[in-house]
Design a protein around this nucleic acid. Structure first.
Lengths: 208, 208
DNA sequence: TAGATTGTTAATCGATTAACAATC
DNA sequence: TAGATTGTTAATCGATTAACAATC
């Protein structure tokens, strides 16, 4: 354990966590790396290697206790606490995110939404989530110790929004705008059009 | 050119295409691999290597003609035609996708939406996109030669929907449900909760 | 021509996997 | 104990990068 961790393990660790959540739900108490690999379509040795970066969580000859491993991985990836979030952009995507119940259940709490459309200000984009003036963004983030900003504004506005989030003290950004944000904090991108293009490329490739 | 193409180039090729689109918009006519790399935060040699799998598109001592390269990559990744799409699931995410104007502009045409909620049937989820009964899904896909299915239903229903799409003759799936679909056709996944978890993992990692 | 930049090779780097000793 | 499965090493595989000859 405790070498340099490959960048690729982050995504897999998250997928282990989600799979263990499901197993917990199914009432499975112990699982082997082999069986977990089968479910995730990976190699068992890869799972064991990935876990070994962080410690020893299993029992030889037996496997992994689902609940124990779930909790350990949860600690590693930072699941324990509630994350405070602001949503910037109250358009279609913003509304979809705000109404996405699963997020709240999993510890992601959207404190407020922001937009620059006067028509939308003061309305509720989702139950309990008020739309505020984007000019208040920086102050709100600072005053409420918001940790994550979700950027759901048009591409042209995204970089500026990111900068204001950073100035407010945000520590991570989930970006839905199709631009590469220049920031010092980590950014995860969700780009639907790009995903569709990767998909269609794969389709034409298979056609030969 | 024409060796086996690394799986990682797909995503990059798409990002080259999107960047060239922007350059075209800015009126840039010629670009070097060095400058393109700077914009995409990659190494110039990687871009040249990636392109070399598909042919020779540049001019030594000069660079790449933006429009020419844009068109060539467009051909490679399958941009030329209009892709016919159905959307399954008329909830919040479905509605956001249906109303996402950029998709239509980029050649992704949603022919219809499907849901099992009687309340929604016959309504328009977006201008010109009717909500139909999910029981008609397979026939509709077959009759209209639909190529891509977007799955925006709850996790429990996703696998069944995927199977019906496949039976109808779909050739690719964009999946928003947090499950690993078992299919024979290519699938691209968009999982917002998973993206948030990868982001928060990165945040706690940087905190040390 | 001289300077610039490609296309491609070969070296490096990093990630995956097989194999197996340790051990429950 | 015998059988099973982990944790870890070492081998393999694949992807990135530096370097440079080709050439515009």
């Amino acid at each position: 354990m405790s070498e340099k961790i490959p960048r690729t393990v982050s995504k897999r660790l998250v997928s282990y966590y989600m799979c263990l959540e499901k197993l917990l739900d199914e009432g499975v108490e112990v699982i082997s790396s082999e069986e977990l690999a089968r479910r995730l379509d990976l190699k068992a040795s890869q799972i064991r290697k990935d876990l070994s970066y962080f410690g020893e969580f299993g029992r030889r000859g037996v496997g992994y206790k689902v609940e124990f491993l779930y909790n350990r991985i949860g600690e590693i990836i930072g699941v324990q606490k509630e994350w405070k979030i602001v949503l910037v952009g109250a358009g279609n995507i913003g509304r979809a995110i705000a109404n996405y119940a699963a997020m709240r259940e999993k510890g992601f709490k959207i404190l407020a939404a922001f937009d620059n459309d006067p028509q939308k200000l003061g309305t509720e984009i989702a139950p309990g989530i008020l739309v505020r003036d984007v000019r208040e963004l920086e102050d709100f983030v600072r005053e409420n110790n918001v940790e994550i900003g979700i950027v759901a504004v048009p591409a042209e506005a995204a970089q500026e929004v990111a900068e204001r989030l950073e100035k407010g003290g945000i520590v991570g950004i989930l970006n839905f705008a199709p631009v590469k944000l220049k920031t010092t904090v980590p950014v995860e991108n969700v780009d639907i059009t790009a995903s569709l293009r990767v998909l269609t490329f794969e389709i034409v490739r298979r056609r030969g």
